[in-house]
Design a binder for these strands. Structure first.
Lengths: 101, 101
DNA sequence: TATATTTGCAATCAATCGGTTGCAAATAAT
DNA sequence: ATTATTTGCAACCGATTGATTGCAAATATA
């Protein structure tokens, strides 16, 4: 069951968790308080984020602080590069349109 | 069953279809020839891409040409903006350095 | 030591996903 | 007119998803 970053960000709750962790590292309980679903449900989301290494953990005593790994998000940005000029460059869009007709 | 662009790009086959359509508009049959799975399976992927409007169709006779809509990809880029400076910052490099020590 | 807190793991469940096959409708070709 | 091609839709199926509850282990606190 190999996870990748694209699967990880498919779920809106996981995107929200990443948004929180990008601001500061948090414990699973603290994260779960931001959502309506149970702590275990949130914990499973964190586990998925861990598997694709977009989140890393740092244990101190019985508490675990999960923190955000921006490098993995870079992979999405890299994939977007193939399409970026299509929405940024109007002449390229025109070229593409003319080719298709 | 509301689809969004993040769900659409979660599947590797759909990402590959977007890669093809970014180069040129194609019919479902032509797209399906690039994959091992059946035409209907590919068609269902296209349907999902249509639902979130990252792909649009243009019918000519019995043939349908699906073409790429770059504007929807912009939404992903916009979401990434929240994290972009975290991986571009020199502070992130410092984080990595400290972890390695 | 006894109790409370924090967390992960396992079992379970309904819903969704990605795939298949079969079929019907529309258009093109013979 | 008959046949072939292109496509969408519906039914079905096993695997995965996102959620729940219950429980056990580890650590902190009284």
């Amino acid at each position: 069951m190999r996870r990748d970053i694209f699967q990880a960000i498919a779920d809106p709750t996981r995107r929200a968790i990443l948004g929180l962790l990008a601001l500061q590292a948090m414990t699973p309980n603290a994260i779960a308080e931001h959502f309506d679903s149970s702590r275990q449900a949130v914990s499973k989301h964190i586990q998925i984020l861990m598997e694709c290494e977009v989140v890393k953990q740092q244990q101190t005593g019985r508490e675990i602080h999960y923190h955000f790994n921006p490098q993995k998000m870079k992979e999405i940005d890299l994939w977007l590069d193939r399409f970026r000029k299509l929405w940024e460059d109007r002449f390229d869009q025109l070229d593409n349109l003319l080719e298709n007709l």
